[in-house]
C-alpha cells in the first residue's frame, strides 16, 4: 500500500486528465446533442438525413471502435490527430448521438399541443423552438442527460487505450512498476465511483434549480418516449 502512496502524485495527475477529458467531452456532447437533435427535427430533409445517419452510426457502433478509428484510421486520410483530440472527438460524438435522441424525444413529445398554440399566436418555427419548446424541454432532458454524463465519465477510461495519460493509464503504469495490483485497481475503482457520484449530485442540483426557476411541473412533464412512431428518421 505504501508503494501506492509514493505514486499518489502520478495517480492525481491522471485524475486531472480524466476530469479534463470529461469536461471537454461534456461540452462537445451537449453541442453535438443539440445540433444533431434539432437537425433531426428540421423540416428540411438535407438537415434531417445527415443528422439521422450521424446519430445512427455513432449509436450503432462501439465507442472504442470509433476512438480507434479517429486515432488509427483517420491518418490514412492525412489527418494525424493528437491522442487527446481523437479521444475527445470520439467521446463527444458518441455520447452526443445519444444526447441527440434525448433532445429530439423530449422536444417532439411536447411539440404537438404547444406548437398549435404557437401557430395560433403567429409564431414562426424558429421562434417557437427558441422561445417555447427548448426552454420547456430542458427540465425533462436533465435526468436522461445525467445518465449520459455518468456514461461519459466512465467511458473516459477508454482513452487510456489510445495513450492518453488519464487515471486508468496512470493506474496501469503504477501497477506494472509496483506490482500492487489489488491496491491500485481498487483505488481507481473507488475514485471513478466518487467522480460519477459527484456528477449525479451535480445533475440533481441542476434539476432542482431548473425546477425552481420555472413554474412547478405537472405530472405530464416527464420525458416522453425517446422514439415516437412516425417521426422522420
Amino acid at each position: 500500500m505504501s508503494d501506492v502512496i509514493t505514486y499518489a502524485p502520478l495517480l492525481l495527475q491522471g485524475l486531472l486528465i480524466t476530469v479534463l477529458v470529461t469536461v471537454l467531452g461534456a461540452i462537445l456532447t451537449v453541442v453535438t446533442a443539440f445540433t444533431a437533435g434539432l437537425a433531426r427535427l428540421s423540416q428540411h430533409w438535407w438537415l434531417r438525413w445527415p443528422a439521422g445517419v450521424f446519430v445512427e452510426v455513432f449509436r450503432g457502433t462501439s465507442l472504442l471502435v470509433q476512438m480507434f478509428w479517429f486515432f488509427f484510421a483517420l491518418p490514412f486520410f492525412g489527418f494525424q490527430l493528437a491522442p487527446l483530440t481523437a479521444a475527445v472527438l470520439a467521446l463527444g460524438f458518441n455520447e452526443g448521438a445519444y444526447g441527440a435522441e434525448i433532445v429530439r424525444g423530449t422536444i417532439s413529445s411536447r411539440a404537438a399541443g404547444q406548437s398549435e398554440a404557437c401557430v395560433a399566436l403567429g409564431m414562426g418555427r424558429a421562434l417557437r423552438m427558441r422561445r417555447v419548446l427548448i426552454p420547456q424541454s430542458i427540465p425533462a432532458m436533465l435526468p436522461p442527460f445525467c445518465n449520459v454524463m455518468v456514461d461519459l465519465l466512465k467511458n473516459t477510461s477508454l482513452v487510456s487505450l489510445v495513450t492518453v495519460a488519464d487515471l486508468t493509464f496512470r493506474g496501469q503504469m503504477v501497477r506494472s512498476t509496483t506490482g500492487q495490483t489489488t491496491a491500485v485497481f481498487l483505488t481507481i475503482l473507488v475514485l471513478y465511483f466518487v467522480l460519477s457520484s459527484l456528477i449525479s449530485l451535480l445533475m440533481k442540483w441542476l434539476e432542482r434549480r431548473f425546477a425552481l426557476d420555472r413554474r412547478p411541473k405537472s405530472r405530464r412533464d416527464q420525458p416522453g418516449p425517446l422514439v415516437k412512431a412516425g417521426m422522420p428518421v
Binding site: V150, K154, T168, L189, Y192, S200
Partner: peptide, 11 residues
C-alpha cells in the same frame, strides 16, 4: 453502475 466496465474488467 458508477464504475467503468474497463476497470471492472481489469480488476
Amino acid at each position: 453502475r458508477g464504475t467503468p466496465l474497463l476497470i471492472q474488467a481489469y480488476c
